[in-house]
Amino acid sequence: MKRPLPQAAGAAAAIVTIATMALTACAGPGTSGPAPTASRSSAAAADGPRVAVAYAGGVLVLDGRTLEVLADEPSEQFVRLNTAGDDRHAFVTTSQGFQLLDLRTPELTGLVVKAAAAGHVVRHAGKTVLYDDATSDTTVFETADLAAVDGALPEARVIPGVEAHHGVSVVLTDGSLLTTVGDESARTGIRVTDAAGAEIAVSDECPSVHGEGTAKGEAVVVGCEDGALVYRDGTITKLDSPDAYGRIGNAYVSEESPLVVMDYKDDPDAEGYLLHRLALVDTEALTLKVVDLPDGVEYTWRGVTRGHDGEALLLGSDGRVHVIDPATGEVTASHEAIDPWQSPAEWQDEHPALAVAGEVLYVTDAERRRIVALDVHTGERIAEAALPVTPNEIVAID
Rank of each mutant, 00 (worst) to 15 (best):
M1F: 09
G10R: 01
I15N: 14
T17P: 10
M21A: 15
L23S: 13
A25R: 15
C26S: 15
G28D: 13
R50S: 03
Y55L: 08
E76R: 10
R80L: 14
D86Q: 04
L100G: 06
K127W: 05
D133C: 09
D133G: 04
S136Y: 03
E142A: 15
A144H: 02
L153Q: 06
P154R: 08
V158D: 06
H166Q: 13
L172H: 03
D174T: 06
L177A: 00
T180Y: 09
A186F: 11
T188Q: 09
G189C: 12
I200Q: 08
D204Q: 09
C206S: 10
E218T: 10
A219P: 11
G223W: 07
L229E: 07
G234L: 08
G234Y: 07
G234N: 06
G249L: 12
A251T: 14
V253G: 02
E256L: 13
G272F: 11
Y273M: 11
R277A: 13
L280E: 07
L286D: 02
V290N: 12
V291F: 00
V297M: 03
Y299K: 05
L314R: 11
G316S: 09
V323R: 15
G329R: 11
E330G: 12
V331L: 05
W341Q: 00
P352H: 07
P352L: 05
G358E: 02
A366S: 15
E367G: 08
D375G: 09
V376K: 03
I382S: 09
V395A: 05
